[in-house]
Design a protein around this nucleic acid. Structure first.
Length: 472
RNA sequence: GCUCCCAUCGUCUAGAGGCCCAGGACACAGCCCUCUCAAGGCUGGUACGAGGGUUCGAAUCCCUCUGGGAGCGCCA
């Protein structure tokens, strides 16, 4: 295993996958693929209270849907796993032991309440709320005494004093943080559970990850992990911190505010390739204009073309890629895409025919409903201006239309010719009333293709009805 | 509260001192094409958050402010 970058996506299954997470995953995935490396998936399920198997399953499904196939991860073990942190307790124990032996960590007996008081006091004094170091100086007897009183200690990392921690962020550039601004941070809970700072950093190192792309919110935590890894003698990956993805109104994405999830987009019928084309351009530039196929994405992605400013998730832009994606669907693919929308009794060939006809006029599967009704059902009520067009043409137009249709059939060219001859109408004046009477709307596929697709009795019925229409 | 990050059209962005009275894409408007919508072609409007510097010259460098965000958790 040499050469290419090893990247990972490390979600915690505490909720649904949001576009922001998906983008982070995508960039990591493309970074690995583009460099001939490996993409890992690690599940950070250390929060017993909030984690859920259903969330996990949902996120995995979303990732697979987007085509981000992980080289190693849950269900694809490779010897460096397990890839769920809940299964790595023994590994963490070993690392904790090393840290404790080296004297770079110490047991902390402070209770949540005590810490809270300390935090508030510091805040009130205009100080940043950092761990005060209460338990740092405890000697062996003091520790023994507390242990004897039944207190379960957590483990804290000893942050060295007076040091400047430097690292070169893949997207932010050189960073320098004073260790004095860091408090001794927790690395193991009192119940023995591993804490994010610890297991996240340790796992990246142990799994051989070379580049970590993650959210901006981890930027100021990075020095801690660097310190920790150094103390452990493990090699740190390079970090790149992506700006957050915002809701359309500019606020951070959150479940509370009802931010859209990947699962929602999928269930609405957005196509994975559309989402991918959009995500690739959010906070990342240099991709050529126009559609980019999945296979080309890795070649287009450039980590040095990552932006630093937060981007908003804009459905209008997604919709553009969605239309493009739908257009690129074959009839078979489009039929699958619309599978749940078709009238149940339509046979496959009818579905394919309908789809070929309508595809380019659809954005989401739900849009198909009214068109299926046009082909095989009741028209929706006409909009006022549409009704006016039909009423204006009236019986003088639809009477001949009925006769011509009976004589000629669904050949629009000949039908139009005949109608032009008999009514004197031509161009829009001829086609518009026809279209509206037939479909109940003024947009849609070519009439010449539409007409043969509508059963004759329906055509006759619609012409008859149109002949009697009046503005009310 | 303290520390850190960010700031160009409505949106995504290009721009690393003169090539920018700021370019592209999406969206929007108009025109062309056309039976309609879409697609396609053409045209148009709209942006460097504010104020100070530095410089012959600043969207680009510095400072302040404003706005937004993050971190400081026995959450991740």
């Amino acid at each position: 295993m040499n050469g290419g970058p090893i990247t990972r996506f490390a979600p915690s299954p505490t909720g649904a996958l949001h576009p922001g997470n998906a983008r982070t995953a995508l960039f990591s995935f493309l970074l690995a693929r583009g460099g001939g490396g490996r993409f890992l998936l690690r599940i950070e399920d250390t929060d017993v209270a909030r984690d859920g198997e259903d969330h996990l399953a949902g996120q995995l499904a979303d990732l697979e849907w987007l085509g981000m196939n992980w080289d190693a991860g849950p269900g694809r073990e490779d010897g460096r796993g397990p890839y769920r942190q809940s299964g790595r307790a023994a590994i963490y124990r070993e690392q904790y032991a090393r840290l404790e032996e080296s004297g770079l960590s110490y047991p902390c007996f402070c209770s949540a309440a005590e810490l809270e008081v300390s935090r508030k006091t510091q805040l009130a004094a205009g100080q940043p709320p950092r761990y005060a170091g209460t338990c740092r100086g405890l000697d062996a007897t003091a520790r023994a005494a507390r242990l004897a009183s039944g207190r379960r200690p957590a483990l804290r990392f000893t942050v060295p004093a007076g040091e400047t921690i430097r690292f070169d962020d893949l997207v932010r550039g050189p960073q320098a943080i004073e260790s004095a601004s860091l408090g001794d941070f927790l690395i193991r809970r009192a119940d023995g559970g591993a804490v994010f700072f610890f297991c996240n950093a340790v796992d990246d190192a142990l799994m051989g990850v070379t580049q970590v792309l993650r959210g901006d919110d981890h930027l100021s935590n990075t020095p801690r992990q660097l310190l920790l890894l150094r103390a452990l003698g493990l090699e740190a990956p390079r970090y790149g911190h992506l700006p957050l993805l915002l809701d359309p109104n500019g606020s951070p994405q959150s479940k509370r505010r009802g931010s859209v999830t990947v699962a929602e987009l999928r269930s609405q019928g957005y196509l994975a390739d559309a989402v991918l084309n959009y995500l690739l351009r959010l906070g990342h530039h240099g991709a050529p204009d126009g559609w980019i196929g999945r296979e080309q994405m890795a070649g287009v992605f450039r980590p040095d073309h990552l932006g630093r400013a937060p981007a908003r998730f804009d459905l209008a832009q997604l919709d553009h890629w969605q239309r493009e994606a739908v257009r690129r669907l074959s009839a078979e693919q489009a039929a699958d895409w619309l599978a749940s929308e078709f009238p149940a009794d339509w046979p496959r060939d009818q579905r394919l025919a309908a789809v070929a006809l309508l595809k380019d006029n659809l954005r989401l599967p739900a849009d198909a409903q009214s068109w299926f009704a046009v082909l095989d059902g009741e028209l929706e009520p006409f909009a006022r201006e549409d009704l006016a067009v039909v009423a204006d043409a009236g019986a003088a137009f639809f009477g001949p239309a009925l006769e011509a249709y009976a004589a000629i059939g669904p050949d629009l060219g000949r039908l139009a010719e005949e109608l032009k001859r008999r009514t004197g109408r031509k161009g829009a004046a001829l086609f518009r009333p026809l279209r509206i009477a037939l479909t109940g709307r003024h947009d849609g596929p070519e009439l010449a293709a539409l007409l043969p697709a509508i059963p004759a009795p329906l055509v006759r019925g619609r012409f008859e009805k149109a002949a009697g229409m009046r503005m009310d």
